[in-house]
């Protein structure tokens, strides 16, 4: 059978949890109509990605990549995923701020955060424009 799970699912529990977090965020993005909850879902998805990256950089028995003194030789974790997570956090903060400000403007225009109601109002406006 082609579709078979590998052996490392339980050993890679951190990655598995990251995937579950990603999925929770994705479900929130799809199933909620409220724009605020969609933004929170996107942030949960980001958290899943950070956890995945951070766990990919781990080396067995490795310490944080900070040398106590210049001559010390210790096993260190991979520093590259840590830097990438930092980039991700900054980008996610910026995107969240932009989305929230756009949401404020949408609420100002339509007085609701529900996406379906916003679509209905837009359709009504268009019909009104066509008939007049």
């Amino acid at each position: 059978m082609i579709f078979r799970f590998g052996d490392n699912l339980l050993i890679n529990y951190e990655e598995a949890i990251a995937v579950v977090l990603f999925a929770i965020g994705f479900c929130m993005l799809l199933f909620h109509n409220n724009l605020m909850r969609k933004i929170i879902g996107l942030n949960i998805m980001d958290t899943g990605v950070y956890l995945f990256l951070a766990s990919m950089g781990y080396i067995e028995g490795g310490k944080a990549p900070i040398l106590p003194d210049p001559n010390a030789t210790i096993t260190m974790i991979n520093p590259i995923p840590s830097g990438l997570v930092l980039t991700g956090i900054v980008v996610s903060v910026s995107v969240t701020a932009l989305m929230l400000s756009l949401t404020v403007r949408l609420y100002k225009r339509y007085h609701t955060l529900n996406l379906d109601e916003i679509y209905e109002i837009i359709e009504e406006d268009e019909e009104y424009d066509i008939h007049n």
């Binding site: 990655e15 995937v19 994705f26 067995e60 991979n78």
Partner: peptide, 26 residues
């Protein structure tokens, strides 16, 4: 959702073990 969760978990099950030193990322 089910498709994405299944695919991602399936991929995770084939990733190298957690904390391994010989992965392509290191």
């Amino acid at each position: 959702c089910i498709f994405i969760i299944g695919t991602l978990l399936w991929t995770v099950s084939y990733l190298p073990p957690y904390g391994d030193t010989n992965t392509p990322t290191h």
